[in-house]
Design a protein around this nucleic acid. Structure first.
Lengths: 135, 135
DNA sequence: ATATTAATGTTATATTATTACACAATGTTA
DNA sequence: TAACATTGTGTAATAATATAACATTAATAT
């Protein structure tokens, strides 16, 4: 039992769409996914959005909110999408999921002064990646 | 010189739209802003989006990415929109800007293991606010 | 004054996402 | 296994969010 979260058997549409996102080196947008899977019989936006919703829900993919795009989860410690952090290069748009135990501990334990109970967070860092930063 | 950021003189459209957002108890969406300001001579989406872009740029308002909505900045320490954190109640959709020196210090100084240089971050916490949390 | 930059007004269009409805597959559970 | 509930599918239509392109005007800088 090394997996952090329950295995879900993906349905056909979910599997097709997950595989596509998982293989993509960059975040994918819903309509670009749609165009890519039309040869596989997925014809309508809703079919894509439904699969995306489910995949996000079970933590197989994450939505990059500032980009309206989706990437596969490569971080077993981001317990079912409850605690996500990304770095985003504003030059080349490369997005990387951050897996820092320190960061996730800090944020998971963070309490605001209003005593609000948090069940989830999403953090997006912006900057320029190593490649795009002039020496 | 108590202000954290340079004063910008807002243009007419910018001022109208800022005032509206500033008075709103909840985040406002672009098209709801558009409907509200049509009596004041702002007729087209682009006029709203242009003002919003500028207001975000100078730090007078922030965009809540997960909601596609905008709130006025009430946090002098969020240096021109470079470092923003919000708490979002998933029940009543109340959004509050978090001003925690500890949090902003921690995140501003955070370095990932790829050595990426960050110039900005946005953090959104989700949960249920005091009002919406059953005792 | 004139060059430059920033903002405006307008039309059209692109992109992102959801509603509504009918039906099929799968999973309980009695 | 029959009945029921739940989840997923397919399709059409439409809503909601955001930008492109172009002409013009206002503000700022030299």
């Amino acid at each position: 039992m090394s997996k952090m979260h329950k295995e879900h058997t993906l349905t056909k549409n979910q599997q097709i769409i997950f595989d596509l996102i998982d293989k993509s080196p960059e975040p994918m947008k819903a309509y670009s996914i749609l165009f890519s899977v039309q040869k596989k019989g997925i014809n309508a936006p809703l079919q894509v959005y439904r699969a995306l919703d489910k995949l996000v829900e079970i933590g197989k993919i994450h939505k990059i909110e500032s980009r309206n795009a989706f990437i596969a989860c490569h971080n077993s410690s981001c317990q079912v999408a409850k605690a996500t952090a990304f770095s985003i290069c504003e030059i080349c748009e490369k997005v990387t999921e951050i897996s820092s135990t320190g960061l996730s501990k800090y944020l998971t334990n963070f309490k605001d002064k209003d005593g609000m109970k948090y069940s989830k967070y999403n953090l997006e860092f912006f900057g320029s990646c190593k490649k795009c930063t002039p020496k």
